[in-house]
Design a protein around this nucleic acid. Structure first.
Lengths: 123, 123
DNA sequence: CCAACCTTGACACGATCGTGGTAAGGTTTG
DNA sequence: CAAACCTTACCACGATCGTGTCAAGGTTGG
């Protein structure tokens, strides 16, 4: 058996074995398995576990948040959706490609806005 | 007063006023304030609130996760740290683009199937 | 002036997260 | 074969998330 078993990996990386399984379920580090299903951590996984630990300690970041960025990097549609939403951040409409759509939406909602006033105004 | 107050904005966007304050504390949408401190939502904020709602509904994404990506986009050091960690990931699949992801999933399924056989075959 | 808004702050409560532990059972190895 | 590992699955428990509601007080507008 080449590769460390889970408790060995835990002691050399500073994680608990419980957390190594959690990290795996979070999609972050999945070591290969032996024929009988034992997790086998190679040098690469061990290194990544250490740097992951550093990452979480240095910045105020959670496992789940790193997992989410990983998910983004795999799901291109999701990434575009989120990035797209962020890209439309409040700024002045000098932006060429977005501006047409934005103007259209603004016009549309100017009317809705007026309607909303009528509806929500209680008198 | 130009712009909708919080309850008007709530009824036109589908959020509750409570959640609009929460969204604001999450750093996602901060409307400007009137002289007396009232939140005033303009067409742009209203539109963003609607698309945000869509984003959360369409994909399985939480407010906090979108907030984290926003935080990444503002904290370059954090973004490089996270991206850097992800970039060093073990490349089972030929990296990066979406079509490869499918292949990766198929490989993964095969692996899990093999494991399942090992586990459930009792001998 | 008063009703109907708005503000912040707090309490509440189920759901999920992060983490540990334990149980039931298979594997490895001295 | 027995000790010491490993596996998955479950219970637990404080912390945080998502959301509502209520209280105390300021603002607005007829």
């Amino acid at each position: 058996m080449d590769g460390l078993t889970i408790n060995e990996a835990a002691t050399t990386t500073g994680w608990s074995s419980r957390m190594l399984r959690y990290v795996e379920r979070e999609g972050l580090i999945a070591p290969r398995r032996s024929d009988s299903g034992y997790r086998l951590y190679g040098p690469e996984e061990l290194q990544r576990l250490r740097t992951l630990r550093e990452l979480l300690a240095d910045h105020e970041v959670s496992l789940g948040e790193v997992g989410f960025v990983l998910r983004l990097s795999r799901d291109g549609a999701l990434k575009s959706a989120v990035d797209g939403w962020l890209a439309a951040r409040p700024r002045r409409p000098d932006d060429v490609e977005a501006s047409d759509w934005l103007r259209f939406e603004q016009d549309k909602h100017e009317r809705l806005l007026a309607e909303a006033r009528l509806i929500t105004t209680t008198h």
